[in-house]
Computed example of a mutant assay.
Amino acid sequence: MINKNSPVPIYHQLLEYIKSKITSGEYPADELIPSEREFSEKFQISRMTVRQALNNLVQEGFVYRQKGKGTFVSRQKVEKRISRLNSYTEEMIERGLKPSSKLIEFEIIKTDSSLANILKITENDPIYKIKRVRLADLKPMSIESIYVSCELAPNLNQTVLEKSFYEYVNSNIPDPIQYADQSIQARLASEEEAKLLEIPPNSPVLSIDRTTYLRSGKVLEHELTVYRADRYKLVHSLFRND
């Protein structure tokens, strides 16, 4: 509740009150929360104070606004630890979400010189080109574009790609996954990406370019993944090297 005699600013008390309703589940994800007027009347505070609290919650990612409709609870952001080489399926299960995939593209193409250099194979060698939308609880989270040598994974098929690619690797390739090099950038979604991720055009996204290596030094895959910035935050532990 709001204590007007507290040294804590009223807008901050309201902010924490709304946060508690969100974290407890009383205000569920994607549901409309009370309006500025309703909060103002309930706690006998000014609408400007309410607006300040809601603006801060928007900035922190707890709520989002829809013009003409009101303020809604944001879905919880998934923490992606960029120092761990986990599969998407493993990440979602760890967070209590149900992972699934929507296969957009699966074909065998001849590699160009750029991809051949990354995959450490010969130009024009056959590779799989795979494009999937990854979902959590049936909501789009990311778009993966993966390139894999056909020689390395000769029996890869669409059924496999409806599940976990890393699970397939662990079961079918005796050479274990060792490490990956990756780069990260923030940008705006293309029209196609926005449509697949079900977000407004030009929404912010996180783009990760990753090359994964097996213990032998062979390249397992080259992957380009686009993540919804409203559903992901990147987490990394840093150590001082004295």
Rank of each mutant, 00 (worst) to 15 (best):
1 M>Y: 09
1 M>V: 12
5 N>H: 13
6 S>R: 14
7 P>T: 06
7 P>N: 10
9 P>T: 13
9 P>S: 15
9 P>F: 12
10 I>Y: 00
17 Y>I: 05
17 Y>N: 04
27 Y>D: 01
28 P>C: 09
29 A>Y: 06
31 E>H: 15
34 P>R: 00
34 P>K: 01
35 S>E: 01
40 S>P: 06
41 E>N: 10
42 K>A: 12
44 Q>D: 14
48 M>R: 12
48 M>K: 12
53 A>K: 04
57 L>P: 03
58 V>S: 08
59 Q>F: 12
60 E>L: 11
65 R>K: 14
66 Q>Y: 15
71 T>S: 05
72 F>M: 04
76 Q>H: 15
77 K>D: 04
79 E>T: 06
79 E>L: 08
85 L>F: 04
86 N>T: 08
86 N>W: 07
95 R>C: 01
99 P>W: 11
101 S>C: 09
105 E>P: 05
107 E>Y: 15
108 I>R: 03
111 T>Q: 01
114 S>G: 15
115 L>M: 09
119 L>V: 03
124 N>A: 10
128 Y>T: 01
128 Y>M: 03
128 Y>V: 01
128 Y>R: 02
131 K>I: 06
132 R>P: 03
137 D>P: 10
151 E>S: 11
152 L>I: 10
153 A>M: 09
155 N>A: 13
157 N>V: 02
162 E>P: 09
170 N>Q: 13
177 I>D: 00
178 Q>A: 08
180 A>E: 03
188 L>A: 10
189 A>T: 04
192 E>N: 13
194 A>H: 02
195 K>Q: 08
199 I>T: 00
200 P>M: 09
201 P>K: 13
211 T>G: 05
212 T>W: 02
217 G>H: 07
218 K>E: 02
220 L>Y: 05
230 D>S: 10
235 V>I: 08
238 L>E: 01
242 D>P: 12
